[in-house]
């Protein structure tokens, strides 16, 4: 049963419950008024019987009548109370179902695709997918190489400049560097993977640095990171959400242990976080603000 049927049944059970309570209460009130009177009647009769033995059958009949009445009342109360218990069970069962149907929050399913929490970012992903991989403008690389020179010693300054420009090291740009200079692909691969500052995958619009220093670790930085990754639907082994809005990094120390656990979204710092407030901190920078 569900919907209006359940509601009507619940209301009916509630009505039966109230009615039987009222009936029991009325019965009780009437009995309270009645019992002393009958007690007095019996006492009076008993006194008369002591004086006149012929009245004994009257007393016996009266006593029997009262006993019968009490037995009937006991049975009535028993039935009413059983009805009350049944109705109460029905009412509570129905009411619980109705309330549960009302209050049940939608089940939060972490989505694998565009983040449900950042719908704008989700749209951005769709647009990106439609336009395929955007072409990277490599004229910057050409100009850079003219300035830095073509020797192997220029590798690190070139990589730094490329990262500063594109915010990561695009494969096309690195191929261009190999093509135009004496730097070998092996050297580029080695250098770019050795220094953790260099990254080979695109970075999100905003970088979230979650402090994992001692104080933050103790205060639950792991839970903060987990919650962010879950909320942004960042896949295992990656650090950026599918819409490329946020990149979540674990860093050593942000230097404000008194605010632990703490994170930085770009230049905004948020401290004393809990898993529940971690995602609110991301709202400091609107998703897609720079797009």
């Amino acid at each position: 049963m569900s919907g209006p049927g359940l509601k009507n049944a619940t209301i009916a059970a509630g009505a039966v419950m109230v009615l039987s309570v009222v009936a029991l209460a009325v019965d009780y009130a009437v009995m309270r008024g009645w019992t002393p009177a009958s007690d007095a009647q019996i006492a009076a009769l008993q006194e008369k019987v002591q004086r006149d033995a012929k009245l004994a059958p009257v007393l016996a009949a009266e006593q029997k009548r009262i006993a019968e009445f009490n037995r009937a009342r006991r049975a009535r109360v028993n039935w009413l109370s059983l009805v009350l218990v049944g109705a109460a069970a029905g009412f509570l069962g129905g009411a619980k179902r109705l309330l549960a149907g009302q209050a049940r929050p939608p089940v939060r399913v972490p989505e694998r695709g565009p983040s449900a929490v950042w719908p704008r970012a989700g749209r951005a992903v769709a647009a990106q997918a439609a336009a395929a991989a955007p072409e990277i403008d490599l004229t910057f690389v050409d100009g850079l190489i003219e300035k830095e020179g073509r020797g192997a010693e220029a590798a690190i300054p070139i990589l730094q400049a490329i990262q500063a420009h594109y915010r990561y090291l695009p494969d096309e740009a690195l191929r261009r560097v190999c093509h135009l200079t004496e730097i070998s692909p092996a050297q580029i691969a080695g250098t770019s993977s050795f220094y953790s500052r260099f990254r080979r995958s695109p970075v999100g619009e905003h970088i979230v640095r979650v402090c994992h220093g001692t104080a933050c670790h103790v205060a639950g930085a792991r839970q903060i990171t987990d919650e962010l990754r879950r909320e942004l639907a960042i896949a295992e082994g990656e650090d950026t959400d599918p819409s490329r809005t946020f990149t979540v990094e674990e860093v050593a120390c942000l230097g404000c242990c008194s605010l632990a656990p703490v994170l930085m979204v770009d230049e905004h710092t948020a401290g004393k976080l809990t898993p529940a407030t971690a995602c609110d901190a991301l709202a400091a920078v609107q998703p897609g603000e720079r797009a």
């Binding site: 089940v107 939060r108 399913v109 972490p110 694998r112 987990d226 990754r229 879950r230 295992e236």
Partner: peptide, 18 residues
């Protein structure tokens, strides 16, 4: 609890969410 009982089925398998 979303991680208990029948609701778990509505969720991504445990291994996939860290």
């Amino acid at each position: 609890c979303p991680r208990e009982g029948p609701l778990v089925k509505a969720f991504v398998p445990l291994g996939e969410v860290r």
